[in-house]
């Protein structure tokens, strides 16, 4: 490696690499969110029987992590490079390690470890099993086999790989301060993000209008619930994302007591669960078109029909007893 890769080079290299592994390269989703997992390209598409292979860069906002642009490692908004593959390929660890090689990281010159880290996002009803990947002691990637998403058991299982772009780039460029990273062509990360980091921190911690945020949360929630009933999965999900971000803003402001916190998270979880179920139903109505093998598609559809019939029967029996 002669010249150090810029952040942009790193993202582009990863995109090209995962595209060769059969992933679609998508763009970031345009609603605020705390993690790449919350993009509908992961949260919704991980659910259900259809295969799905995707990679994208997701700017992720975590208001409580803002540090006014003064901390070299903590950010209001960071960038995740997200890969989701369903079903999880047998050689996914090897695929991941090869991606590091593409970035000029030769495993023989470093210490790469898979250290247990089970992931949970209770507010979205998600849980998974996996590792954080350590590169010479630094956590550069979260590696998760999803087990439950939106309260639904995974079948088949999707595997998610989330690279922390800033972390990885700091390592590759050997800088100690995230704002010193080179984004590309001599433009520094700080040139782009230092000002918004300061302003967003100022806003989130000091100036946000709590009353307005509380009202917005209620309004978004109401709209999301209405849309779930209408079967409009995607618009409903957008409003859940807005709820989630609004909650994060309130939380950063210290406007949520521990008790209220549990209440808010439960409200978001309930909506996420409703959407997950609705999404599967909508895909089923379309006949799970991403299953390209016709026989397999028929089998899966038949299985779903059978399951539904059984459920209806149980419901009916219960009704009789009453």
């Amino acid at each position: 490696m002669t010249k150090k890769m810029s952040v942009q080079d790193i993202a582009t290299t990863l995109k090209l690499y995962w595209s060769k592994q059969g992933c679609m390269i998508m763009d970031a989703y345009d609603t605020e969110k705390g993690a790449g997992t919350m993009s509908p390209f992961t949260f919704l598409r991980a659910i259900g029987p259809e295969p799905w292979n995707v990679a994208y860069v997701e700017p992720s906002r975590r208001p409580a992590d803002g540090r006014y642009g003064e901390n070299p490692n903590r950010l209001y908004q960071h960038h995740q490079f997200q890969v989701l593959m369903k079903p999880s390929p047998d050689n996914i660890q090897e695929l991941y390690i090869s991606s590091l090689k593409e970035l000029g990281i030769n495993p023989l010159e470093h210490d790469i470890r898979f250290v247990e880290d089970n992931w949970e996002n209770p507010s979205m009803g998600c849980a998974g099993v996996g590792w954080e990947v350590w590169l010479d002691g630094m956590e550069v990637t979260q590696f998760t086999y999803f087990q439950v998403v939106g309260g639904l058991q995974m079948d088949p299982v999707a595997v998610e790989i989330t690279y922390g772009l800033e972390r990885l780039s700091s390592y590759i460029q050997n800088v100690n301060n995230v704002f010193d990273l080179e984004w590309s062509n001599g433009v520094k990360y700080g040139d782009i993000f230092k000002e918004p980091e300061y302003e967003h921190s100022k806003y989130s911690f000091e100036l946000s209008d709590q009353e307005m945020l509380h009202k917005m949360f209620d309004a978004y929630e109401k709209e999301a619930k209405r849309l779930i009933k209408e079967g409009l999965v995607h618009p409903a999900y957008d409003y859940v994302l807005k709820c989630s971000h609004t909650f994060n803003l309130l939380d950063a402001r210290g406007a949520v007591s521990v008790t209220e916190r549990a209440g808010y998270l439960a409200r978001i979880r309930k909506m996420a669960h409703g959407i997950a179920q609705a999404f599967v139903q909508e895909r089923r109505k379309l006949g799970f078109p991403l299953i390209k093998d016709e026989n397999q598609r028929e089998t899966v559809l038949a299985e779903f029909a059978k399951r539904e019939e059984k459920k209806n029967k149980q419901k009916k029996n219960k009704g009789d007893k009453k």
Binding site: P87, S88, P89, D90, N118, V129, Y145, Q147, M154, D155, P156, V157, V159
Partner: peptide, 8 residues
Amino acid sequence: TMMKWGTN
């Protein structure tokens, strides 16, 4: 903790 993977 137990886990499933792939299509199993």
